[in-house]
Structure formats: structure tokens, C-alpha cells
Design a binder for these strands. Structure first.
Lengths: 112, 112
DNA sequence: TTTTATGCATAAGAAATTTATGTATGTTTG
DNA sequence: CAAACATACATAAATTTCTTATGCATAAAA
């Protein structure tokens, strides 16, 4: 993650969200997908991505499946049951954060 | 900051935004204002707030004015010129972040 | 008189990054 | 054909930003 400043804490939500619609993805693929979906606004660095994936796996949210393609090793990640549940809650959390920030940035003048 | 998980990096933006409409505020006042504006969703802890204020001051974005009220000392902060400029850019950054996250969470299916 | 509110501050530790490397294979390009 | 770029993973050191835990001080409320 670099360039357009990301708020720390959002990376795992991004990963989980992508995996919730793709069934399985590998690390490099995730960096490319994010780059294309955000038109280059967001660039996930490997230094952030791989530790994040390892942590999600260690927490039991992702499971791994190795695969050799074109003589190159790929590590495919997919959501576990627990991961699917956690994804929902992370997305709700993001939603709340966005609404809260909106309320702070554009406060409704109190009536009366 | 505790409770409703905040994305790290947003605190200084919140502080700057509040000061951009209030002329001057002191630390404790900021914690209370945030609590009331977010209906308790966001609670800024002193451990996060004071170091953040000190950093903004050190960076030349805020200036300080001490004042004694009811035998209690208050440290009022206000935006400097540089702080006003930086506020605009921080708000744009937040706006871009929100749009980017929205694009990731609700991607438009590519036409064709 | 103990808790709660007001008001500031710092220090230790944790979490999530950035930046800098390292390894390896395959393709493109000058 | 050598150098650069793309693909693919990984880790380590340093930095940023926060949480948690204290500490000090005044004043009001219970």
C-alpha cells in the first residue's frame, strides 16, 4: 500500500472483500486487481500484503492451496467459513466508519 | 480514540476539520465535540489526542495560546496559514479515500 | 470522602504500514 | 545477448499511529 494514502486498518478488509467475490486469489493477483479497480489510485506493496495474508491465515480466516503454473509457484487463498463471517463484520465496520466520518465532516446543524 | 474502530491516520484530519470551523479549541473540548458529533460512536483518548496535537504544532499547522479559565489551564489551538492549506488537502485526501474504497466495495461492472 | 468531571501530559507496548532487500523464473527490448 | 521489466513469493528494520496505563492538579457532586 502506498501512493494515495490509505488509512491503516483497511487492507485486510480489502483482501477479504475481493476474496468474497472471487473464490480464490493469489497475492500478486490481488495487487493487480486493486490497481485496476482503483485506476492506479491504490498500490498495495508486497511488504504490506504478504504479512497481512499470513496473519489472516493464522487467524483462520483464509486457507491456502499451492499451485504451480508456468513453472511458477502460486499460493492461492480462499475464505474459510470463519473468514466469510468476518468479512461481513469488517464490511459493516467500514460502513460505520464512513458514515461516522461523514457526520464529522458534514455535520447536520441541530434544529431549534 | 477507541470503541468504533477508527482507521489509523484519520485523527489529524478530524482535528484539523474541527479547527477549521471553530477558530480555536482546546484538547478536552475536542474530545467532547467528537463524542457529541458522533453520538458516542467515536471516543478520542488522551493518549492519542495530545501527541497528535503536539505533532501538528511541531509541523507548524497549529499554534498555541494558553488561557486560564476557572483556575484551570487551557491550551487553545488554532490553525496557522499552513494549517489551513493542509486542512484542505487532508479533506481532499479523505474524500478520495472514501471514493476509492467505495469503488472497491461496489465495483461497477465493466460495460461490453 | 470517594467518585466524576475537567484539563494536561507521557511512557510502554501493539498494530499496521513503508522501505529496502532477497530469491527465482520468464519475457521483452534495444 | 544483456538489461530491463513482469511475475511470484518472502522477510527484516524502521516508522507511524494508536491503545492502555499512569501521573498530576483542581473542582464539583454524591
Amino acid at each position: 500500500m502506498s501512493n494515495s494514502k490509505l488509512y491503516k486498518g483497511s487492507l485486510s478488509t480489502i483482501i477479504l472483500k475481493l476474496l468474497s467475490k472471487e473464490d480464490k486469489m493469489y497475492g500478486y493477483e490481488i495487487t493487480q486487481r486493486v490497481k485496476e479497480l482503483t485506476k492506479g489510485e491504490l498500490k498495495i506493496t508486497e511488504g504490506a500484503l504478504y504479512p497481512a495474508l499470513h496473519k489472516l491465515e493464522a487467524d483462520g480466516l483464509l486457507e491456502v492451496e499451492m499451485q504451480k503454473v508456468d513453472n511458477r509457484l502460486r499460493k492461492y487463498y480462499k475464505l474459510t467459513q470463519k473468514g466469510t463471517t468476518e468479512t461481513v463484520s469488517k464490511l459493516e465496520e467500514l460502513e460505520r466508519f464512513m458514515e461516522t466520518m461523514n457526520g464529522l465532516m458534514n455535520p447536520k446543524p441541530s434544529l431549534g
